[in-house]
Write a protein that binds this DNA or RNA. Structure first.
Lengths: 221, 221
DNA sequence: ATAGCCATTACGGTTTGCCGTAAAAAAAAG
DNA sequence: CTTTTTTTTACGGCAAACCGTAATGGCTAT
């Protein structure tokens, strides 16, 4: 059973929607937070008082403002919360929709549900909630397909490094020096060229411009 | 006075928030639409029946789904609505925050207010509403500053066209043919090279990869 | 009509990127 | 320790991109 819920969401409008949804779901006790630090703190206190939350509902992106925060986004909040109270259920409610990123949240932090802010999001929230109430994970069917599709190429740290340098204005022939200075080990121009060639081929791209755009869109950059 | 409001917003959660806000503002008559076509239609009908809406609240991005729509985003909706009922007040409520884009909405379509989905958005909605009730325009103070700052370079349609082609994998020497086939008029390779060179210089970039990334980040692509 | 101006195009030299092959180095296997 | 395999690097020819200069074409004003 889910009795006690904490909502972490900085947008007032979305926060209120979630609260209203909680009421419709007849959750007796829900709290809300507009900052990650605040949410984490409430979770800590509740656990200490022997009345821990059953469920955290959180967005992924939080906007910085004049109040300086230790935890400044949902990813870090999830990580921190898992350390404080490993068994708490986590529902991610966000507009973010990079499938691989979401999938990695399920794998790495074992989140229990993901609902995308979209048409019919409230209905989907309730579906997710039902699943969670029964102790089930809620993994949207569409997500599985999207993950499959998008997982055409697995980028290594090295790949990302190169692509980032390109997107920062480095020429390819400047990159070997850059890598040598940092003792990063494949560092020849030839290897860099080969790597880029390979990546482009696997993704069906002809130009680095496409690659950079792709990496931005999938959240790699 | 604002008596009658129409809400165009596809996210259920945001839509419900707006409805709730309308109730708090004691708006007696408000309707909502989850599709632009639906919103436009309601505006048309209301006007025909001699009970036109006073205010349209709309998002800018609407997601496509199986229901094929004629008008598929807020920009087009605003344009269409201005033709149907030029005097209606328009409040844009969106997560979109490209200052120049928003500013151009004020200039081109004479929208009356813009509220960003963010922390305290509900409070700002009410402020905007107050201004509109008094017949005033609501132009957020922060927006003016941002517009000034961000106007480093003004992209022409032509610029965007070229950059988009690059980001789709076109080689520069393929672009002249592409443009000629479509009777787009500077179309020589030389002009394209010159244009890109100029853009890069003005933005302090050395590579097209940077440029593409920049355009993606600022929402031009 | 023509002179002047601006945008567009054409051209050529240089640099950078692309891609194949082969050598060298490192890692794995025997 | 040697052999095999894989990874990394070096090199070279060619295509694309870069960038300056000059020529062309269109437009305006006198």
């Amino acid at each position: 059973m889910i009795d006690k819920v904490i909502i972490a969401e900085d947008h007032t409008s979305a926060n209120l929607s979630l609260q209203k949804t909680m009421e419709e779901l007849q959750i007796k006790h829900y709290d809300d937070a507009y900052y990650c630090d605040d949410a984490l703190n409430k979770i800590r206190v509740a656990k200490k008082n022997g009345q821990p939350y059953d469920l955290l509902i959180t967005d992924l992106s939080f906007e910085a403002d004049e109040k300086v925060q230790i935890i400044d986004d949902g990813y870090k909040l999830i990580k921190a919360v898992r350390e404080v109270q490993p068994e708490i259920m986590i529902l991610v409610f966000t507009g973010e929709h990079r499938p691989t990123m979401i999938d990695s949240l399920y794998k790495e932090y074992e989140i229990d549900a993901y609902v995308r802010k979209a048409r019919n999001d409230v209905k989907e929230l309730k579906l997710a909630f039902d699943a969670l109430s029964k102790g089930q994970q809620y993994y949207p069917r569409a997500l599985a397909q999207l993950v499959k599709q998008s997982n055409t190429y697995e980028f290594t740290e090295f790949d990302i490094h190169i692509i980032r340098l390109l997107s920062q204005g480095y020429q390819q022939n400047e990159i070997p020096d850059y890598l040598k200075q940092r003792n990063i080990r494949p560092c020849s121009l030839s290897t860099i060229e080969k790597r880029l060639n390979q990546i482009r081929e696997e993704l069906g791209f002809s130009k680095n411009e496409q690659l950079v755009l792709f990496c931005k869109e999938t959240g790699i950059l």
